[in-house]
Amino acid sequence: MSNEIKAHVRVSNQRPTFWRAVSAIVRKDLASERRSRELFSAMAMFALLVILIFNFALEMDAGTRASVTSGVLWVTFSFAGTLGLNRSMAVEKDRGCLDGLLLAPVDRSVIYFGKAIGNLLFMFVVEAFVLPIYTIFYNINVFHPGLILVIILGSIGYVALGTMLAAMVVQARTRDILLPIILFPVMLPLIIAAVKASSAFLQGLDMEFIWPSLNILISFDLIFIGLSYMLFDFVVEE
């Protein structure tokens, strides 16, 4: 070990830009997940089980399948998403790394956006894994551009609010139970709108029937991204 630093490197610190710091957190989460595969394997396995259980439990004919498809799809995404949200903040808390993030000389909303974007990417990966399986089991082509748009908007809203609430409950001993209990009631408008819009796209309804649900999804996304941006600092404050 060489403790004598012969040529001390001149360290110059420039406070990182907002998005550079956000990207550092996202890259860290992706690198960590690439190694451990903790989040993806838990979320994907859970989603697969939900699809299988619904498929065999409901014993549906073709007509019923078409009507319940979007509901089962969003139940799958919501439940799998909750696992991911819980885990992503718990990893920071359990290893004490949340303090490491909070000590960085950046706006605290950087942490929110970094974690939220990471969660969103994991959710997209799981959704990309679930959709083909879903198509096979339910014999319905879910690769409809409109449905993909709904999934993207719904996932953004889900993660925007979910990341905020996960940060809120991470200090609690009962966080695993607490998150779904407080998440799902608040998430209800988003899930109802997402189910309605998905169902309308799959049934080939006119856009005039779909716009109200899409508007709810867009409004939900904007409201909760804005609220989280403003409030995250207070949420993580001791």
Partner: peptide
């Protein structure tokens, strides 16, 4: 502190890279 504030699934180099980026260390 007595907690290392390090990520177990990252290498030593990656941990320092991450914190260095958060602090805006240029070199």
């Amino acid at each position: 502190s007595h907690q290392p504030l390090l990520y177990g699934d990252l290498t030593a180099e990656e941990n320092l890279q991450f914190y260095g980026r958060l602090y805006g260390v240029t070199n």
